Computed example of a mutant assay.
Amino acid sequence: MGGTRHSGRRWIPATLLGAGLVTVLALTGCTTTGAGTAGVGGVGLVEQPEPAKLTVSPAAGAKDVGPGGPITVNVADGTLEKVTLTNADGKQVKGELAADKKSWKVGEDLGYAKTYTWSGSALGADGKNVPLSGSFTTVKPKSQIKASLNTGDNQTYGVAMPIAVTFDAPVKDRAAVQKALTVETSVDTEGAWAWLSDRSAHWRPKEYWKPGTKVTVKADTYGIAFGNGAYGRNDVTSTFTIGRYQVVEGNTQTHRMVVKTEAGQTHDFPASFGLESDPGRVTKSGTHVVMSKHASYGMTNPKYNYENVVVPWAVRISNNGEFIHGYAPSIWAQGKQNVSHGCINLAPANAKLYYDTVLPGDPVEITGSTQQLGAQDGDYYDWALSWEKWQKLSAEVA
């Protein structure tokens, strides 16, 4: 077309003209879309510049807005000259204007049950200003739910360490909350969130972490709707590192506890596991995770009539009372038979050798017993679940 209008004229021969025939003038031409003025007599089309089109979120007049956002301004066919968001006291809210001046986003958390007012303007392609104005009100929550993390900043963890976000009240809308949870890794790592209860979401990799991986976890839950009128009270984040590879392999039938690193096997200790004839004393099979370690620890179990029995070099591997620790009174059984109340007993000297190498998050793989580690044992039973079962506990597929 070229923006030019063409026309032509076709004459009917005179011999074809009669009483019912008239001269027919056929005109041909171009059509255009969008704004513009069609040229006449060979003059080209002239596109008209567009005015700026603002998209504001939340819009003017919006009520019960979640302060978790999005709180943004975007413009098409123009640029933002100035964007200001102020609270009821006239204080300006922090925000960030993009380098291309096409968008603005809030830079701090808004308050609950507060009124905020937009002001500013955009300059359109047509050279005209379009004002930004209007107010919105944030929601007043029925309750607020607090989040906490099991990992700390600048800490180092073992290759089986799960990430746990725990809430201080049940979460109704798990899908909405899960969208606010992110994990960033320095090494490509396949992993997924799983809800192990209505108050706890865990993230673990499909396979053990690669040593040296740097991890940042964020729970940006402030202002997020949790369901039933509850909203997030806070944001939490941590950045940590995965340390060296180390795994314990304990076999209740051979009565051995083997420690392996990337360099190979470093220790093979005689051990005594839980007494198998008593269901309440069996050491559970499955992959446990080191939770903490203590130079000495007082063991108490009213069911079996002992209280504050202090043992050295205690490494907790489950919330069901299972530890790896030194215990001189059972040296006679270590490497031969299982006599403990569920713990892995080592000679104190051997327990110290192991204790000195431990990181929270190290895996302890137990095999050979008559019971399996599971949900009844509390944190962390993450690795007792197959990857297929783990993925099914995500709110995204529930």
Rank of each mutant, 00 (worst) to 15 (best):
S285E: 11
S285W: 05
S285N: 10
G286V: 04
G286P: 02
T287A: 10
T287S: 11
H288Y: 09
H288M: 05
H288F: 11
H288K: 08
H288V: 04
V289I: 15
V289Q: 03
V289W: 02
V289D: 03
V289M: 05
V289R: 07
V290K: 00
M291S: 08
S292V: 12
S292G: 15
S292M: 13
S292R: 14
K293C: 00
H294T: 07
H294F: 15
A295Q: 00
A295L: 00
A295H: 00
A295D: 03
A295K: 07
A295F: 00
S296A: 05
S296C: 00
S296N: 06
G298A: 13
G298L: 05
G298K: 14
G298V: 02
G298C: 08
M299T: 02
M299E: 11
M299R: 09
T300I: 08
T300A: 08
T300N: 11
N301F: 02
N301P: 03
P302N: 12
P302D: 13
P302A: 11
K303D: 12
K303M: 03
Y304L: 03
Y304A: 04
N305I: 04
N305G: 12
N305L: 13
Y306R: 10
Y306M: 09
Y306A: 07
E307Y: 15
E307A: 15
E307V: 14
E307H: 15
E307T: 15
N308M: 09
N308A: 11
V310S: 07
V310W: 08
V310A: 01
V310R: 10
V311T: 09
V311P: 02
P312V: 02
P312G: 01
W313Y: 15
A314N: 09
A314M: 09
A314D: 06
R316E: 11
I317Q: 03
I317G: 04
I317F: 08
I317S: 04
I317H: 03
I317E: 08
S318F: 02
S318E: 01
S318I: 03
N319P: 02
N319G: 11
N320F: 04
G321T: 06
G321V: 04
G321A: 08
G321Q: 10
G321K: 08
E322R: 01
E322M: 12
E322L: 07
F323P: 02
F323G: 00
I324W: 01
I324V: 13
I324R: 00
I324T: 02
H325F: 08
H325N: 13
H325C: 07
G326T: 13
G326F: 08
G326I: 12
G326C: 13
Y327I: 09
Y327A: 13
A328P: 02
A328C: 03
A328R: 13
A328E: 12
S330R: 14
S330C: 07
S330E: 15
S330Q: 15
I331C: 11
I331S: 12
I331G: 04
W332V: 14
W332C: 09
A333N: 03
A333M: 06
A333C: 02
Q334N: 14
Q334D: 14
Q334K: 12
Q334L: 11
G335S: 10
K336R: 14
K336P: 00
Q337P: 00
Q337K: 15
